Simulated scan of single mutants.
Amino acid sequence: MSRALNVAPKIQPVDIVGRFRDLERGVRTHENNPIGLPDAPQGRLQSMPIPALILFKAFCYIDQEFRLPLLTGEYLPMPDPYSQITTVAPGILDVLIKAMELRAADPRSQAIRKVFLSLVDLPDAARVLEIGCGSGAITRELAHLPKVAEVVGLDPSPVFLAKARQLAAGIANLYFDEGDARSLPYADNEFDLAVFHTCLTHVPGPEKAVAEAFRVLRQGGHLAILDGDYSTTSVAVGDHDPLQACAEAAIAGLVNDRWLSRRLPGMVRSSGFHLQRLDSYGYLQADSPDYMLTLVDRGADILVNSSRIDSALADGLKKEARRRAESGEFFGFIAFTGLVARKPPL
């Protein structure tokens, strides 16, 4: 199906709400005027100035699977690779592993986790489960916490798990299993702590994962969730900053639900947990912004792969990010939400 759009006499912002209504009805915009502009270029960002790219940004979530593209009327599937991790190409997996390890090693991330994990009251000889452990960076930290007897890291990716086992060699109380967060391969009441670290925003149907965590926790056990409020992601230093398009493309292509952290309190309560703490942690990189530069790079690559910009413009955006980093002008920020909840004791 299709419908014609009313063409404005001058450039107007895209009516995102109207687009969502159309998309919910399964209606596609008219192919000859995909974004409601006179003589709009057909999928060629090279013909459109960068301010227009920012003005008409449309990295919006639609049923957690499709995003409204910038310059075409088609619905381009841009799945979060973590949510389909078992089918992702090896080269992409290597990039994701490096990014996970890089962020985990960052002193700012370490400081956030130290404060966050100190809020969890563990019993002696605790059994801990990290759900969605990836390459095991956080699982390794959990294994060294006081009172922890055993840690299990679970992930659906055999490639991630192979790397996790390699990096965890020699840690005697650490084990890894393959499995789905929404159908945990464990009996009821097995663990004292279940941890989701930057995991739930990548899981389609996260409420199922939270319910499963409730099931496998012992009475009085704790749930600890630390995840990005990715709607706050920014590398902009002013209005219409072209680098922000890269950051938003990265989040649109790498996160299943950027708004999830704001719904977590209701979600955990619905699963039966008693909410104990809800905190926000600012993750800021200005000096040595290694991780945030990877977001710019991956976002630029996503824009190229979806035919929104050409490789020359992508290279220029990456170079601009590094110029800012070298001159002390770079700014990168993500707010993280920390939640601690408890399964009611008997």
Rank of each mutant, 00 (worst) to 15 (best):
A104W: 00
I112M: 12
D106T: 04
T139L: 05
A162N: 08
L145P: 06
D177L: 11
Q110P: 10
L161K: 02
A111T: 10
A168S: 15
S183Q: 15
N173Q: 10
P158S: 08
L154I: 12
V115D: 15
R182F: 04
I112L: 11
D106C: 05
P146V: 02
L122R: 08
H144D: 11
P146L: 02
V152I: 13
A105L: 06
S157N: 01
V152Q: 08
E178L: 10
Y175V: 06
N189S: 13
S135N: 12
S157K: 00
R140D: 10
F191V: 10
R103W: 03
P123D: 04
V151M: 01
A164L: 05
P123I: 05
L119R: 15
R127I: 06
A169W: 03
R127M: 14
P158I: 02
R140M: 13
A172V: 13
G132V: 07
A105W: 01
L145F: 06
D177F: 11
R127C: 12
I131C: 15
K147L: 10
L129A: 03
A169I: 02
L167C: 08
G153I: 04
L167I: 05
G136E: 00
I171E: 09
L174W: 02
F196C: 07
I138E: 15
E130M: 02
A181T: 06
P107L: 09
T198F: 14
L117T: 08
S109R: 11
